[in-house]
Amino acid sequence: MPVTALVSAKSCGVTASALALTLASRRPSLLAECDPAGGTIRAGYLQGQVTAGYGLYHLAAAERTSTDALANAFASHLWPMDGAGHRKLLAGLTDPAQAAALVRTWPALSEVLHVLADEAGYDVLIDAGRLALSSGRLHTTLSPAPLIHQADLVLLVVRGTEQSLTLARHVIDPLCSELEESGTGADALGLLLIEDGPYRAHQVAEALKTPVLAALPWDPDTANYLTSGGRPPRGVGRGPLLRHARTATEQFEAVASRRSIQQQYPPRPVSPHLAGVLRRLDEGRGGSRG
């Protein structure tokens, strides 16, 4: 299954989109909230259920101890988002000042995420937040650059508005260059269109010279629920956003599979330490924290 990183040029619904894709997937799924500007899901969608004792920041100290410690910490800091434990969250930072501590943790975390995708069949979504560039490159502290580099797909989330397209134009070329030089190739980049505004998918693809890999409908009630939590809209699971998100996850898998075949990626070796992640998750599946 693919590891998919979602990014934006400015706030365009990355978190709501990532949540929708995670909740709608037909397979076990994991959302890693890796925006260095801070996470919003624990205070929004989860309404404070997840305390600061869980989440991304705690992986930094574990990684400095050993790979084994990181694998164990990763498994123990996932939060179930459904009763069966098939939807998991690695909650994000509670303070943007914590981002600097993660600079050396990102590569190891990327390896863990790919183990889950490749060996356990998880759909892995990364909320990488707003792109931060410095001298035309991803900022090493303000962007989780290694996660973006190694993702099977990188989705630039855009809306069908003139403002959103204008902002996106400024980041596509440097992002393509970075993925070509340091990532899995410029063809990893695609667009996820939020259908808010007058421009349709073919117009957006033509304007930005980048393929639209999927589109999600403008569904403000569901988007607000995913962003802010509270009482879910009636029939949220059958609503347009989650229905289209389910289709989108299948589209992303197909694109990632084609890329893998075309590029003939060698299998990633799995270390015994990281294989322990799979055992821990299988043991914990179906349980929940009180």
Rank of each mutant, 00 (worst) to 15 (best):
L208Q: 12
P146L: 01
L113T: 05
V236R: 10
E162R: 14
A151E: 08
Q98F: 07
A9G: 12
L153R: 14
L216W: 09
D219N: 12
E33P: 08
L109H: 02
G239W: 04
I261M: 13
L156T: 02
G44R: 08
R159Y: 06
A151V: 04
G230Q: 06
R279L: 13
L153F: 08
L133H: 03
L175R: 10
K209I: 15
L167Q: 13
S260D: 11
A61N: 09
D187E: 14
A16Y: 03
P233D: 09
Y57T: 10
P269T: 05
V115P: 01
T105C: 11
E63G: 09
D282L: 09
A52L: 08
T210H: 04
L278D: 05
A16G: 10
L93T: 01
A69I: 06
A73N: 03
R246E: 12
T161P: 07
T166F: 09
A61K: 09
L90A: 03
L31N: 00
V236A: 12
P96F: 04
L90Y: 01
D219G: 10
L147F: 01
A5F: 05
A108T: 07
S76E: 13
V7C: 07
R279E: 14
S76D: 13
G284Y: 11
S11W: 03
P144R: 00
I126S: 08
Q47R: 15
N224E: 15
D187I: 07
G185Q: 01
P174R: 04
A275D: 09
A84E: 13
R169W: 11
L133F: 11
V204S: 11
D35E: 07
A132M: 10
A73F: 02
S288T: 10
W218Y: 15
A37L: 03
G160D: 12
T247R: 13
A75R: 01
P80T: 00
P2K: 10
A245R: 03
Y45F: 14
P144Y: 02
D173S: 13
A245W: 04
L156F: 01
F252I: 04
L179S: 03
R279F: 11
L78I: 02
H139L: 08
P2T: 05
N224K: 14
